[in-house]
């Protein structure tokens, strides 16, 4: 009689421990998904911002890069850019020439003669506001994050300046502000978005090559555009969850 009691008690303890362990293990595993994904859009009422850049419309005027520096108090020296424009020239011999003089702010002069050019185009670059952002993943203190609207932002009061995020961004979007001495990058003009205004670069683009919008809204211009055009992101093999979609992206672009 006593032995049965002990065995059944042992059995109960065993099952209880297994169940408890499994529950703890499951909750731990669920939270460790954090390792892979930086954020999931939780608040359905907020917009989930995406960006489209149409390469065929970009004329390399540099208005976007200039406006960004004006709007966001970025030093005018040619070493810090929240957004910039590159010019790719593929010559007839197959070589690829890339330039970005002062980020394209002063425009581009054609240096290579027409006869040598196979094709040439401009590629505006900016923060891709990734939703599996590697820069957010590596920040050791939580000074960079994805806002509930899907905009990757920096907490300038918390950043310790370790520069890990700058190393982790595959697109070269981040830099250390020379005066503030913390990380800095394109914020999609979050301070303008919150007031219902367009980001500065999109406001001034003369050809409408830059677009932004709410990816959740099926009727928004951006979603319609994505439906009607074939778009690509940069470095898709790195699985960054980039929300910057390029139309007309040529295979030479990195």
């Amino acid at each position: 009689m006593a032995n049965e009691k002990i065995t059944s008690r042992r059995k109960f303890l065993k099952t209880a421990t297994v169940l408890a362990g499994a529950t703890i293990g499951y909750t731990w595993l669920k939270s460790s998904r954090m390792l892979l994904y930086a954020a999931e859009p939780k608040d359905e009422t907020l917009p989930w911002y995406g960006i489209v850049i149409d390469i065929q419309k970009c004329i390399g005027c540099g208005s976007c890069a200039k406006a960004c520096k004006n709007e966001n108090d970025v030093p005018k020296e040619p070493f810090f850019f929240r957004t910039w424009v590159e010019q790719y020239t593929i010559k007839n011999d197959g070589s690829v020439n890339i330039v970005s003089p002062n980020g394209g702010i002063d425009g581009f002069e054609q240096i290579i003669a027409n006869e040598e050019i196979f094709k040439s185009f401009f590629v505006p670059k900016m923060c891709n506001h990734c939703y599996k952002s590697p820069c957010t993943q590596v920040c050791p203190v939580g000074a960079t994050y994805e806002s509930p609207e899907g905009v990757v932002l920096i907490d300038e009061k918390y950043c310790i300046g370790c520069r890990y995020c700058v190393q982790a961004c595959p697109y070269g979007c981040r830099f250390i502000h020379p005066v503030k001495k913390v990380a800095n990058k394109c914020t999609l003009c979050y301070h303008r978005l919150k007031k219902g205004l367009a980001p500065a670069c999109m406001e001034v683009c003369p050809t409408g090559a830059r677009m932004y919008g709410n990816l959740r809204d099926k009727n928004s211009d951006i979603v319609k555009y994505l439906k009607e055009h074939t778009t690509q992101v940069l470095r898709p093999h790195l699985n960054t969850g980039s929300k910057l979609y390029y139309n007309g992206l040529s295979s030479e672009v990195r």
Partner: peptide
Amino acid sequence: FGKYGHYRAASLIDNAKPELHYAGQ
């Protein structure tokens, strides 16, 4: 800290504070 994720939620307000320079047409 931690309200919306592993960051200081007040930073969202900080990021919305900067002055505008462009007015929009």
